[in-house]
């Protein structure tokens, strides 16, 4: 349990891209001492993370310090499913490469949904990071849990693979390692953390973890970084700011002014992912242009003994 500034924070500072203006607010996160830099290995590590987040929450409550409340806004007016650049959705591709996600997992998946007036829209769907998370409620061993920052994580070192969370998730945002996951061999060199689920472990559940490790280091999630149209904003409800890398917006006003909505609001899951309605009109997409390019898992060589499976 580490309460200071994570070492990965400085590292990220050093390597972080500088072309993005006004990113200072995200950089300040480091100093904020979220205090959850995950250290250690295996179950102890995950437990440390768990206790760390809990301790951070209690400490914040006791001292009156503010705690990050990570949120995401996806501006559907600018999402064209990467049709303009004729590529598979870059958010998904970047997520896969950043997390070495096994095939066929798309932690952020771009769905093509029909519009009521004809035509379609694209909806990039990460884990909704519900504040009333059905998956956390049903987990029999507490392997999936909410952090005080409002992120739902999966501890694959504890998961028993009963998959009741997959049944409970109303957004189909959970994935299971049915066999030995097809991941690149270098994944084995990474130290596992519930905040960065690499390497994937057979017989356990995984999902989008909202990249809090990147955020703490002043960087946006892989998906947000990769979006060519800047339609994925990432930020902090507490500070009321979010950015897509090009502009910083005041979160509450941005949401209200653009009549943001959340998926399946009626279920009462209270997600942290907001959408601004649209079909890619701001980047010149016609709603009648259909079709996404297929996602590719770019590993040339995967870990020995691994197998592929479908959805």
């Amino acid at each position: 349990m580490d309460t200071g500034v994570g070492p990965d924070g400085e590292a990220a500072e050093a390597t972080g891209e500088s072309r993005v203006p006004r990113r200072g607010f995200l950089r300040s996160l480091v100093a904020w001492g979220a205090g959850i830099a995950a250290v250690g290995v295996g179950v102890p590590e995950a437990n440390a993370l768990r206790q760390g987040t809990r301790a951070a929450g209690t400490a914040a409550a006791a001292t009156g310090t503010r705690l990050r409340r990570w949120a995401m806004v996806i501006d559907l007016r600018r999402c064209d499913g990467c049709q303009a650049i004729d590529e598979p959705p870059r958010c998904t591709q970047a997520c896969i490469q950043g997390h070495l996600a096994p095939e066929p997992m798309q932690w952020i998946e771009v769905y093509e949904a029909p519009l009521p007036g004809g035509g379609t829209q694209f909806i990039p769907s990460p884990c909704m990071q519900c504040q009333n998370p059905p998956c956390v409620n049903v987990c029999p061993v507490g392997a999936t849990f909410s952090t005080p920052e409002g992120i739902v994580l999966v501890d694959q070192m504890r998961c028993i693979g009963c998959r009741i969370c997959m049944e409970a998730c109303p957004y189909d945002r959970r994935f299971f390692n049915w066999g030995s996951p097809p991941i690149p061999r270098e994944a084995a060199l990474t130290e596992y953390s519930a905040e960065h689920e690499v390497p994937a472990i057979r017989g356990t559940v995984m999902k989008c973890e909202f990249c809090p490790d990147l955020a703490r280091g002043g960087r946006r999630p892989y998906c947000s970084q990769a979006c060519p149209n800047g339609c994925i904003y990432y930020g902090d409800l507490e500070e009321d700011l979010a950015t897509n890398g090009r502009e910083v917006v005041r979160l509450s006003r941005f949401l209200s002014k653009n009549t943001a909505f959340r998926l399946k609001e009626e279920l009462g899951t209270d997600p942290r992912v907001f959408y601004i309605p649209g079909y890619g009109q701001d980047v010149g997409r016609s709603p009648y242009r259909r079709g996404l390019k297929r996602i590719l898992w770019p590993w040339r060589r995967v870990a020995a003994g691994s197998e592929r499976w479908g959805r």
Partner: peptide, 16 residues
């Protein structure tokens, strides 16, 4: 049906 029957003891250790 468990994906990790080797961890079944977690039901006792961490049962919620």
């Amino acid at each position: 049906d468990l994906g990790r029957p080797d961890r079944v003891f977690n039901l006792v250790r961490f049962g919620r």
